[in-house]
Write a protein that binds this DNA or RNA. Sequence first.
DNA 1: CTAAACTTTCAGTAATTATTGAAAGTTTGT
DNA 2: ACAAACTTTCAATAATTACTGAAAGTTTAG
Lengths: 167, 167
Amino acid sequence: MEYQEAKEKFINTWGSLGTLWGINKAMAQIQSLLFISTKPLSMEEIMEELKISRGNTSMNLRQLMDWDIVTKELIPGERKEFFTTEKDVQELARHIAKKRSRKEIKPVIKVLKEVSSIKDDGSAKTKELIKQTKALHNLAETADTLMNKIVNQEQNWITKSLLKLIK
Amino acid sequence: MEYQEAKEKFINTWGSLGTLWGINKAMAQIQSLLFISTKPLSMEEIMEELKISRGNTSMNLRQLMDWDIVTKELIPGERKEFFTTEKDVQELARHIAKKRSRKEIKPVIKVLKEVSSIKDDGSAKTKELIKQTKALHNLAETADTLMNKIVNQEQNWITKSLLKLIK
DNA sequence: CTAAACTTTCAGTAATTATTGAAAGTTTGT
DNA sequence: ACAAACTTTCAATAATTACTGAAAGTTTAG
């Protein structure tokens, strides 16, 4: 496989994976393009490479910056803006986990807590609702905590020793 | 909050979470309905409760069964089919993790391996592609392994001791 | 201050994904 | 074997989500 083919394969695969997990394709592709680029890229270059419009590029770059995954790079003497992505996969994972945890998981955990805290009126239906949402609340909280801890670099020794332990 | 309100809140929240993570709403809602039900439900009952069509119900039930999350229950004397979901959250998580790992993560890991194995032609671009996809491959494999191990009940003692360790 | 160089916004449109409903298919009791 | 009771399939349609392109906005150099 040649460079160009490998590059396209990577960008496409990453794009489809994104789609499957609720991340839009263009966003995933822009990120992956930056991820393997040797230098910061301008909007022009991204548009050209991925064959997407200016508007689309702009909006998705913004969201990537909002996720703290992509940053603007100002190159002296250049008027255009250039973009880079976090190149360290650990950091990358950390940012994504943090964002999705805060914006998606935590609110659900909150609802689970509320629902599982309704007054037990003694009926079987209510008992079941409480029991099951409690279990789910517990699982969600555990998974969320675990994910955040694992992905947090300061505690990285845990990950390492852990992996040795269970692999 | 009364039972009915709590129930609706739970089903809706779960449905939206599903959507966010690439699982369709009806599917997530059917599962959550069964999850808090005290008895197996018929297609009729599910349709009625969630206000969705027969076709939609049928297709999503099939997919849930395909994921081994929902099973048909044959009730003696009844001609209709009834459905139940796995009630144990650990089991539930295990089934979902297993399925998504096999169908979505593993294929991506394979591509990452291929791409990161291209011949190094000495150019900076190629070197970067190889380096970055290798790092990603490594992360993806680690995360996938970890998730599967954690979620696998046989090794559950690990999860427990792990949680004590890091919480 | 002005114009060129660039970025953002957003209404309109396209693409994708989910849902319906009715016809076709299947199973079961008699 | 027949028909009632039920489920599945799938073409049509609706709903959602993503993308475009051009107008509006912003920044910078002179």
